[in-house]
């Protein structure tokens, strides 16, 4: 058989196969379920960095990984000594557990983790009662409790401050914790990966207060 005829035959067969293949592939693609995007190594590195910063309690560093670099107001210390004490205790209480790397769903990549942290509201509930108990103990320890009062017959501010601080310290010694699940999305922009937090993660960054 001549080479030219052989070549023609081959082209014809290949062309037919490609035509049929493209039609079949098109139908299959239209009816097939969405395939999830696969997370890259860089996405995993970003998500692990976020979780590590969260676990370390370095919340301002977590903010640096957030998409759009929002200003969260976490780059300063709390205004009062009690606030600083509480904030430090809260950050120390954050513990992150994650069983898996980030995963793809549709066109998005997510990371899920369990975060246990101090429930500030529950921990501080009854602070007034504890302060009252401390005041009573202080007064009971005095021979003349009235000597503790100021000229106006009220408890001096310095004593109040001490009692409040001690009540807070006692509450922080037995913190109540809560576990929440966070799921944040990972987004790539200009070659860099960022985290888009969910409401649960924002709650944790803000101290879990509501």
């Amino acid at each position: 058989m001549k080479v030219s005829k052989l070549a023609s035959a081959v082209f014809a067969v290949v062309g037919t196969v490609l035509l049929v293949g493209s039609i079949v592939t098109g139908f299959v693609a239209l009816n097939s379920p969405t395939r999830a995007v696969k997370p890259t190594q860089e996405a995993n590195v970003c998500s692990q960095s976020v979780l590590r910063a969260l676990d370390d309690g370095d919340l301002s560093k977590v903010g640096e990984y957030l998409y759009g670099k929002p200003s969260l107001g976490l780059d300063r210390e709390p205004a009062t000594t009690e606030g600083k004490q509480l904030w430090d205790a809260y950050r120390d209480s954050i513990a992150v557990t994650t069983g898996e790397n980030c995963y793809g769903e549709g066109t998005n990549i997510y990371q899920t983790a369990q975060v246990t942290h101090m429930d500030i509201a529950q921990t501080l509930s009854g602070l007034d009662r504890r302060a009252g108990e401390l005041l009573k103990e202080t007064l009971d320890a005095q021979e003349d409790p009235a000597a503790l009062l100021g000229e106006d017959g009220q408890i001096p501010e310095k004593l109040r401050q001490e009692l409040r601080t001690q009540a807070l310290r006692d509450a922080l010694a037995e913190p109540k914790t809560v576990t929440a699940q966070i799921t944040f999305q990972l987004i790539e922009q200009d070659g860099q990966w960022w985290a888009l937090p969910d409401q649960a993660m924002l709650d944790i960054l803000s101290g879990g207060l509501g």
């Binding site: 606030g83 904030w87 888009l196």
Partner: peptide, 15 residues
């Protein structure tokens, strides 16, 4: 994008 927030301001108010 996540909106800007003043988280520690809210925290200070709570404290």
């Amino acid at each position: 994008k996540t909106k800007d927030m003043a988280m520690l301001d809210d925290f200070d108010a709570y404290v």
